[in-house]
Amino acid sequence: MSAPVVLRDVFRALRAELGEEDAGYTYDDGPGPISRLDVMVYPATSPADATIFATIGMSIEPMPPGDARAELRLHCRGAVSPADRERISLHLANLAGYPWTTGRPLGWGEIVTLSAPMPAFPTCQRVFLAGPWVQGQPSALDTEVGPVRVINVVPITEAERERALASHPQAFFSDLLDARDVLGPPPLD
């Protein structure tokens, strides 16, 4: 059976933007309408670049209870080991199912607690969901069924979560970008 048009469009958009993936992880039988979710890996080309993880499958249907579709991305500074790639992909697959397990959509400015720290970010068991923050990052992917929002997953510490809860999401994220490299683990205090 061929992939639904929205997922083909997301795949093509990723290829046009990021090139060919280096690896991919497939998760079957997810919650709700997610019968298959792929996490594609686009490797860093240098230590200063980021390895990018991108989901394909979350946008199969709009997130409950609304009509918005989305896919997730995570950027990680430098090369990522095969073991961490697999564990990061599993975390993203689980996060992609969140709207169907909780009945609440995901969106920019939200904080989600993970079941364990994000691999490659050992002090971060929470993630902040952000829109684009670098010129050229898309806010949405165009598909035949409408836009699919790109949600960037940014691992944060408990102290950062507390600061986020005390301020406006845009102000928090702007301060976080000024304070540290969000593509790598925060410095240990």
Rank of each mutant, 00 (worst) to 15 (best):
S46K: 08
G107P: 01
G78T: 05
L92M: 13
T143P: 05
V112L: 03
A50E: 13
S81M: 09
G57T: 04
S89M: 08
M58Q: 12
G136W: 07
M58C: 13
V154A: 00
G66I: 09
N94S: 11
P62L: 05
Q135A: 15
A166H: 02
S167I: 02
P62C: 07
S115I: 12
T143Q: 06
R77E: 10
A44H: 10
A130F: 01
D84S: 09
A164V: 01
G131N: 06
V145L: 15
W108S: 02
M63Y: 11
R161E: 03
P99H: 06
H168P: 06
E71T: 03
P64A: 12
E71W: 01
P33V: 14
P122R: 04
V153W: 04
R126V: 02
R77N: 08
V127I: 05
G103Q: 05
A116G: 01
S89I: 10
P33S: 13
P62A: 08
G146S: 08
G97E: 04
P122Q: 03
T51L: 10
I151K: 00
P105T: 07
E160S: 04
P147N: 10
A93D: 07
G30W: 00
L74C: 15
G131P: 04
V39F: 07
C124M: 09
A44Q: 09
M63Q: 13
L37I: 10
E144Q: 15
R85A: 07
G97K: 01
I88D: 04
L165C: 01
R87I: 08
V39I: 14
G97P: 03
G30M: 04
R73K: 10
Y42G: 04
G107W: 00
E110R: 01
H75L: 14
S89A: 14
G78Y: 06
N94A: 13
A83N: 11
P105I: 06
A48E: 15
I56H: 10
R77W: 11
A79R: 14
N152F: 11
S59M: 12
L95E: 01
L141D: 02
Q137A: 11
P105R: 06
A48P: 12
H168R: 12
V148K: 04
L114Q: 02
T143G: 09
E110M: 08
W133Q: 04
P65H: 06
G97N: 04
L37W: 05
D29C: 12
P155H: 08
P117A: 04
P169M: 05
L74F: 14
R77F: 11
V39K: 03
L114I: 02
C124R: 03
Y27Q: 02
Q125V: 01
G78F: 05
D67R: 13
P155Y: 10
F53P: 06
A166P: 02
E61I: 15
G57P: 02
F121G: 04
T123Q: 12
V154W: 00
P82Q: 09
P122T: 03
A130E: 02
Q125S: 07
